[in-house]
Amino acid sequence: MAVVRTEGLVKTYGATRALDDITLTFPDGGFFGLLGPSGSGKTTLLRAIAGFVIPDSGRVFIDDAPVENVPVEAREIGMVFQNYALFPNMTVAGNVGFGLEVRKVPAAERKRRVAEVLDLVQLGELGDRKPHELSGGQRQRVAMARAIVTRPRVLLLDEPLSALDKSLRVEMQIELKRIQREVGITTIFVTHDQEEALTLSDQIGILRDGRLVRHGPPREVYDNPRDPFTAQFLGEANLFSGTPEPGGLRLADGTLIPGAPTATIAVRAEDLRITLDEPAAPIRLRARLRQRIFAGAMGTCVLDWRGNPLKAIGRDQDFAGLPAQGDVWLSWDSADMIPLSEG
C-alpha cells in the first residue's frame, strides 16, 4: 500500500503532448479512476506510473520515493492489461504464481498463496486450465489475481473491463470493487466509460489533451463540473451561453434566463422538461424536437435550439404526449442550472 504522486509530468510524442504538466496525488488505499476520451493521455499517465513510459520531465513518487531510476520490474506494481496479457504457455496457477516464482517464494508458500488468491477471485477450481480454455470474465479474474498475488504497492488497471460485454461488465465492476476493498491496495484505473469511473472510484481525474481538467470525488465532480468539458463529458449536459444582465442571462435569441449564475450554464439532459403547451415555469425556451429515441425504460429526445443540438433524457412515458417531430417548449428549474467557467 502506498501513496502515488506525480509532479509536473510531461511527455511528448512528436508534436502531440500526451502528458502536459500532470501533478496529482493518488491516496493510499484509494480507488482512483482516470477518465477521458481516447487520446487524452490517461493510458500514458498509467504507463508512466508503471515505468513503461519515461516522461520527458517531471517525477513519479511511490511513498515519497522518486522512482525514475527504478525499472518496471523493481517498482512492485501490479498491472492488469486491457487484453489481460495472460501467458498462453502457462496454466492459470502458473500465470498467477509467476510473480511469486520470480521473487523466489518457496514452492509450498507459492502454492498456498496462489490457492488463496484464486479463491478470492472465485476461480479456486480452475488452476489447471490454460488461458485459452477460459471465458472472458474468467480471464479477467486471472489477470486480477496475478496482479495482486505479489502484494504490490500499487495496482494499475488499464481499461480492465472494456473487453467484456455489458452485463458481464457490470458484474465485474462489483467484483473489482469487492476485491479492491478486501486487499486494500492503492488502485489507479483507466477508463473511457464514465459510468464505470463513477461506479468504481473514490476519486476521479478527468483528462483532456494530456492535461488534468478536474479531479475529486465522483459526486462532487459530477454535481459541480465547473468547466464545459467536464460538464459534457460526465453525463449529458446542455450548454447555454449569453450576456449576463441584472435580471439574468440574455441568450442570443433574446430569451432571458432569470437567475442564471454565470455567462455559461449547463443543464443536465435529465433535468430538461419538454411540453407541447407553454409552461408556467419562469425559465422556458422554444425549441424544435428532431427525434425521439426509444431505448427501453429510458428515452432520449434530440432537440434543436437555434442550430444548437440539445438532448433530453427521461422515462419513456414522460415523452408520451409528444409528436415525433415539431415545435415544443423546454423548461427547467433554476436549481438545475450548473454554473460554468469559460472554457
Binding site: 513503461f52 520490474e73 512492485e76 510473480g99 520470480v102 496482479a147
Partner: peptide, 27 residues
C-alpha cells in the same frame, strides 16, 4: 507474441533473462 505479455512479465518483476527463458523461448 503480444508485447503486452512481455510488459505483464516485467510488471510482475521478471528480468530479461527470465522473460526470455519462461516466455519468449517457449512461445
Amino acid at each position: 507474441i503480444d508485447d503486452s505479455l512481455i510488459e505483464a512479465a516485467r510488471s510482475l518483476g521478471a528480468r530479461r533473462r527470465t522473460i526470455l527463458r519462461r516466455l519468449i523461448l517457449p512461445l
